[in-house]
């Protein structure tokens, strides 16, 4: 059994309560959501905190998928499993279903949350790639109210986000745009493994041509822009295998993988191209109501 250093523990009863505690306790305190990233780090003593503020009781307030005319709002405490099983998300953003099927295992998915995933900001986090692909914005609440930041501003680098010491992420917002669809592709060494590389793609079409496209990659360096070069290259052109390959080549060029136990940088670069190609193809098929 791996045991963390001693810590104090309190259950937050409201968002205000949680933020108040964070403000009072400072950087030695941490929120715990699903705990599936935080607790392993604490057990390995890679991270040591004096206080844990448990926000699981806020699930009834912050666990939701709400569809509005122009956006979908997802509460920070919404669990992986709820994202996987949400019919609204399957309809509007099938990328969630693709991704959630291959994130960790049912045990982790039963507890892990979208808020925890984004705030953990692991470079291999799948939901970060999904949020980038869908051009999501994050709602951050502090003592003085709320601010909304795009993914590019939210993600500050590996394990670093825009969320301050006395702040918490409460919601993630996804703009709804017509005539689009999305898909996610991942290669792991084994089921439940973190990505060697994964790739999300979203496309929007009109009249048989692509009007916009976004790609979010995981595990190959910082990736929060949606890769505008892909959108530029694809806009106004009818989809084709060559076009998908072109998008893949841009993605491969854009990413910055490193060699590690999961694979060599060359392989990861190759995968960035291959998976972009596949995700793009699948997203386009879905725009036409087809599943590949």
């Amino acid at each position: 059994m791996q045991v963390p250093v001693p810590f104090d523990y309190e259950r937050a009863t409201s968002v205000e309560h949680a933020i108040g505690l964070l403000a009072r306790l400072g950087p030695s305190a941490r929120l715990v959501a699903g705990g599936h990233s935080l607790l392993p780090m604490m057990k390995l003593r890679l991270a040591n905190f004096e206080y844990l503020i448990d926000i699981n009781d806020l699930h009834n307030k912050l666990g939701y998928v709400k569809v509005e005319p122009t956006q979908i709002r997802i509460g920070a405490m919404t669990r992986h499993r709820e994202l996987l099983e949400s019919p609204e998300l399957l309809r509007s953003f099938p990328i969630f279903h693709d991704a959630e099927r291959v994130i960790a295992d049912p045990l982790v998915r039963n507890r892990g949350t979208i808020g925890g995933s984004l705030c953990q900001a692991d470079p291999s986090e799948d939901l970060c790639a999904v949020c980038t692909t869908l051009d999501a914005s994050c709602v951050i609440r502090g003592l003085d109210g709320e601010r909304v930041v795009r993914m590019a501003d939210f993600y500050r680098g590996p394990y670093e986000t825009a969320v301050g010491d006395a702040e918490m992420l409460t919601e993630v917002r996804f703009p709804l745009r017509p005539h689009g669809s999305s898909a996610y592709e991942k290669v792991g060494r084994r089921v439940g493994d973190w990505a060697v590389v994964s790739c999300g793609a979203a496309v929007w079409m009109d009249d048989g041509v692509i009007t916009d496209a976004r790609v979010g990659l995981a595990a190959v360096g910082p990736n929060t822009t949606g890769i505008p070069a892909i959108s530029q290259a694809l806009r106004g052109r009818p989809p084709s295998q060559d076009l998908y390959a072109e998008a893949g080549a841009i993605a491969a060029d854009y990413c910055t993988p490193v060699t590690d136990q999961r694979g060599s940088a060359e392989y990861k670069r190759h995968l960035a191209a291959e998976l972009t190609r596949r995700a793009m193809r699948r997203a386009v098929a879905r725009v036409h109501g087809r599943e590949l």
Partner: peptide, 11 residues
Amino acid sequence: LTPSRLWEAMS
């Protein structure tokens, strides 16, 4: 035979 090692062999 991880995907990466195999891909390198195939390459």
